[in-house]
Design a binder for these strands. Structure first.
Lengths: 231, 231
DNA sequence: ACCCTGCTGCCAGAATCTGTCAGTAGGCTG
DNA sequence: CAGCCTACTGACAGATTCTGGCAGCAGGGT
C-alpha cells in the first residue's frame, strides 16, 4: 500500500517552505525524486488544493505564507538538530539568549508526542566547544540595539591596547569559536568596523534610531567583505 | 487532475481532529465518501506515515495529538536563539542533521504569526566558526546507530597513524570547534574511547543492539571523565 | 449469546499516475 | 538582439495504484 503521491506532495510543501527564495522546478523535481513533468503536475495539484504557490518563468517557485495546512510533526533528525542548536546557543550566547534557547526548547517539548519528548532528554549530542573569552559588554543590550536599530556609544580597546570612544550603528553579531564580534558602521571612522565583545569597555544606547536599515547595511557589508549570505 | 486520495487523507485527518471521541470506521467512511474497506486502507496509510491513530474494536478511532504541528508562540529572544542554533547546526553537522535544522526552522516559521515569522529572516546573528575537518565517516549513520544502540565495526587511524579495526558501542558525539568525536565503548580495548570522525576510515553497522543502554554508558563515562552534564 | 467494531486477504475492473517527447511563452543576461 | 533558463501544456502508452465487494477472524460491550 503506497501513499507515494500524498507523501510526496507534503514533502514538496516542506521543501518549498525550507527554501524561502524561488526554487526552480527541476530542482524541486530532483529533491522529490520525480520527473519535471510530474513535478509540474504536483504543483498544479497543490495549487488546486489551495496552496499559494507562485511560479514565474525564468525564476522558479515560491510558497507564499498562508497555506492552511500546518506542517507535520518534527522528525527525529529535526528534534536532534533543535536540541543540539539549543545547547550550543545556551553555551556560547549571552544569558538572555541562552535562556531563550532553553525556553524555546521547552515550548517545543510541550507540543511533542511522548516518544519525541523523550528524544529531547535522551539526545547524546554534546557541545564541547572551547571556552570563549568573557564578554566585557552585555551582548543582550547589543542585540536589543540591533533589533531596534539604535545607535550605541562604546569605549573600545583595539588590539594594540589603545582606547577610543565611538558611536556605532550595530547591525550584526558574528559568533566565532572563541570570540563574538559586533559588526557596525563606525561614525568615527566612517566605515564598517568589527568590535570584539571582550574588548568593549563601556556601552550605552543612545536610544535613537540610526538612519539606515540594518538589512541594507548587512547587504552592503557583505558585498564589501565578500561574505556570502547563509543558505 | 485530481488528487483524490491525497485530499481524502488530509480530510480524514481533519475529521478525526474534529471529533475528539472515538469515531467508528463506517462513519468516517461515510464522511470521506468511500467504502468501509477503503477507509481501513486510508487509516493504514496515515498510520504508515506516522499518524498516531488508535483503533479499538467495538469502539472506533481516535487521533492522538502529535501528528500536525500546532501554532506556536515565541518571544523575540527565543526566535533569535532558534535561528542562531539552527544556523550553527546547518554549518557544522552532517548533511542530514543540517537539513533537519533547516526543516525544523521552516516548520516553526510556518506556524508563527506574521510578525514573528519576519523576525526569522531579519535575524543578523551570524555563525562564523572555523571550518572543521572533513568527516571521512558518515556522521548520519553514526547518529542512527547511537539512537538504535547498535554496534559499529570501524577502522580507525589513531594519532600516530596506526590503523586498527574495532567494534564499538557508540553512545555520544562531541562537537568541538574543528572536530567531531564519537564516544563509545571499545570492545577491543575494553574501555571508553574517543574517535575523531575525520579519522574513521570505514564504518559498518552490525545491526545488532549492544547490551547496555546508552544513557547508562553516558553516565558512567561522565563519571569516569569528570564531565558535568548539560544544564 | 449477540451485535458492533476493527482488521485482513483476495480479486478484477476502473482509475490514476508517470515518464517521454514535442512545443509555446516569458524573463534574465550579455 | 540572441541565447539560456524557466514555467507551462498536450498527447500517449505502459505501469501502477486504487477501489469496492465479499468472506472471514477477533476483540469489546451489552
Amino acid at each position: 500500500m503506497t501513499v507515494a503521491r500524498a507523501e510526496r506532495l507534503l514533502s514538496l510543501v516542506q521543501v518549498l517552505r525550507r527554501y524561502r527564495q524561488p526554487v526552480s522546478g527541476s530542482r524541486l523535481a530532483e529533491e522529490t525524486g520525480v520527473s519535471l513533468r510530474t513535478l509540474y503536475r504536483d504543483i498544479a495539484s497543490l495549487q488546486a488544493q489551495g496552496a499559494p504557490i507562485e511560479g514565474e518563468a525564468g525564476v522558479g517557485y515560491v510558497l507564499r505564507p498562508g497555506f492552511l495546512l500546518p506542517p507535520l510533526m518534527f522528525s527525529q533528525d529535526e528534534i536532534e538538530a533543535l536540541v543540539l542548536g539549543s545547547r550550543w546557543v545556551a553555551k556560547v550566547a549571552d544569558p538572555r539568549l541562552a535562556a531563550g534557547a532553553a525556553d524555546a526548547l521547552a515550548k517545543i517539548a510541550a507540543v511533542l508526542p511522548q516518544d519525541l519528548r523523550d528524544e529531547i532528554d535522551a539526545s547524546t549530542l554534546l557541545v564541547a566547544t572551547q571556552r570563549h573569552h568573557e564578554d566585557t559588554a552585555d551582548l543582550g543590550l547589543i542585540r536589543t540595539a540591533i533589533r531596534a536599530e539604535h545607535r550605541l556609544r562604546i569605549i573600545y580597546q583595539d588590539g594594540s591596547g589603545a582606547s577610543t570612544e565611538r558611536v556605532i550603528w550595530p547591525f550584526a553579531v558574528g559568533f566565532f569559536d572563541s570570540v563574538r564580534v559586533v559588526v557596525g558602521w563606525c561614525e568615527l571612522r566612517r566605515g564598517f568596523r568589527h568590535f570584539r565583545t571582550d574588548r568593549i569597555g563601556s556601552l550605552h544606547s543612545l536610544e535613537d534610531r540610526y538612519p539606515r536599515r540594518r538589512q541594507a547595511l548587512l547587504k552592503e557589508w557583505r558585498e564589501a567583505e565578500g561574505i556570502a549570505p547563509p543558505p
